Amino acid sequence: MTEEKNTLNEEVNETIETDENTVPTDTETEDSSTEVNEEISIEDQLKSTQEKAEELEAKLAEAENRYYRLQADFENSRRRARLDLEASEKYRAQSLISNLLPAMDNFERALQMEADTEQAKSILQGMEMVYRGLLEALKNEGAEQIEAVGKEFDPHIHQAIMQVEVEGFDSNHVVEEFQKGYILKDRVIRPSMVKVNQ
């Protein structure tokens, strides 16, 4: 029995010794907690770095959008400036033509007068030549008289000041023109003042 006790004691001592070897000491515990703290610290740094990267990407995307908007605005302003330049070139004579129209109206009224003497007839002939020369100059600049009498009424180029019922004209057609209208290329400078059939 004593032998068995001794053997048992020896086994227990061996077990205790092995357990002491496997149980971590204080320094081993500190090392492992330091490692855990370092891992947590690295994870925090990674998260912080990712957040900063996402923030920088958002700022970059915003800056790119702003750049593209500015570029589009610049292109639009260049296009507008080019169109304005083309329009000013195309309609450069508009103000001059507008200023000449009252003189053209006076010429037309003067040419409708009856001439009783030879001297009056020759003056009217000279006025008619000047009038035709002015019309030709206007045509060279792209301005033309608007056709009115007998044409269908168009509110874009005609200004109706009277409505009448006249036989021989279709409904909504111009019967008489009181003042000639003029158009410069595709822009109406002055609409024709007309009388329209109902």
Rank of each mutant, 00 (worst) to 15 (best):
P102W: 06
R79D: 05
A87E: 15
L85M: 14
Q94H: 06
I97A: 01
M104N: 03
I97H: 02
E86V: 15
R92Q: 09
R78G: 03
A72S: 06
A93W: 10
L85I: 08
D73C: 03
Y91K: 03
L70T: 01
E89C: 05
L83R: 06
A72N: 07
L70C: 05
L83P: 03
Y91I: 08
D105S: 05
L83G: 00
D73K: 09
I97R: 04
Q71F: 14
A81E: 12
Y91F: 15
N99M: 10
A72Y: 01
S95K: 13
D105Y: 10
E75W: 01
N76A: 09
E86G: 00
M104W: 02
P102Q: 04
Y91S: 07
S98K: 15
L83A: 07
S98L: 14
R79K: 04
R78E: 12
N99C: 07
I97M: 02
R78Q: 11
L101Y: 00
E89Y: 12
R80K: 13
Q71G: 08
L101K: 08
A103L: 12
L100G: 04
K90C: 05
Q94F: 00
S95G: 01
A72G: 05
E75H: 03
D84L: 13
R79N: 06
R92W: 14
S98R: 14
Q71R: 13
A87N: 15
L96A: 09
L83W: 08
R79E: 06
Q71L: 12
R78T: 02
F74T: 10
R92K: 07
